[in-house]
């Protein structure tokens, strides 16, 4: 039963991931990615990782993808396929090399690392409720948690600097980016 659910849900995730890669339209791709994220969240649920399930939906599908959509619309000056479909020189070569590396890794893992995959997890079965995460996060793993706040702080500064670099942010009455004639 769980196997069947797993197969269906991961099938959905893979199909939408394929949709992301093959869709000509960036926004369609983004929507496929949202659907794929939701399917992956369901996979977490099958592992009884309830908290990660919610975080996957709220942060990845709900917050980060909204930013992606905004960026796409920001870059999408004219037409649907223009701005994002540019080609860098040697793009195909790099893509092929990276793809081969990924494939090799997967083959190695399946061929040699059978014991790595089938090794039982070091956490008890059923781990993953907010209580478990809270206890783990705020006792044993306190330092990484506090460091996270520094990472978020740096990201905040980065976001402001990036928006400023684009030439149009926090200054009041600043002209919008494109310098669009009004």
């Amino acid at each position: 039963m769980t196997w069947l659910t797993f197969l269906i849900v991961s099938g959905i995730a893979v199909i939408f991931a394929g949709g992301l890669i093959f869709s000509r339209n960036a926004v369609h791709g983004a929507m496929c990615l949202v659907a794929s994220f939701c399917a992956i969240a369901t996979l977490f649920l099958l592992l009884s990782a309830e908290f990660i399930f919610v975080v996957q939906i709220a942060v990845y599908a709900g917050a980060i993808m909204v930013l992606f959509l905004f960026v796409m619309m920001l870059l999408n000056v004219q037409g649907q396929e223009g701005a994002l479909a540019g080609r860098a020189p040697g793009q195909l070569l790099v893509a092929l090399a990276l793809g081969a590396a990924l494939l090799g890794q997967a083959v190695w893992l399946v061929a040699r690392g059978g014991e790595i995959i089938s090794r039982p997890a070091r956490i008890p079965a059923g781990f993953g409720s907010p209580e478990d995460i809270g206890t783990a996060l705020f006792t044993r793993n306190l330092l990484p948690f506090e460091i996270t706040s520094l990472v978020l702080l740096a990201a905040m500064a980065g976001a402001v600097v990036l928006a400023r670099k684009a030439g149009l942010s926090p200054k009041p009455n600043g002209a919008p980016a494109g310098g669009k004639p009004e």
Binding site: V66, F70, M73, L74, Q78, A155, A159, A163, P176
Partner: peptide, 19 residues
């Protein structure tokens, strides 16, 4: 489908961090 102010992008970014 014109460009729009980068302001929206900044809000989305800050939202992720606070979220």
């Amino acid at each position: 489908r014109d460009r729009f102010p980068v302001k929206f992008y900044l809000v989305a970014m800050l939202f992720i961090l606070f979220d």
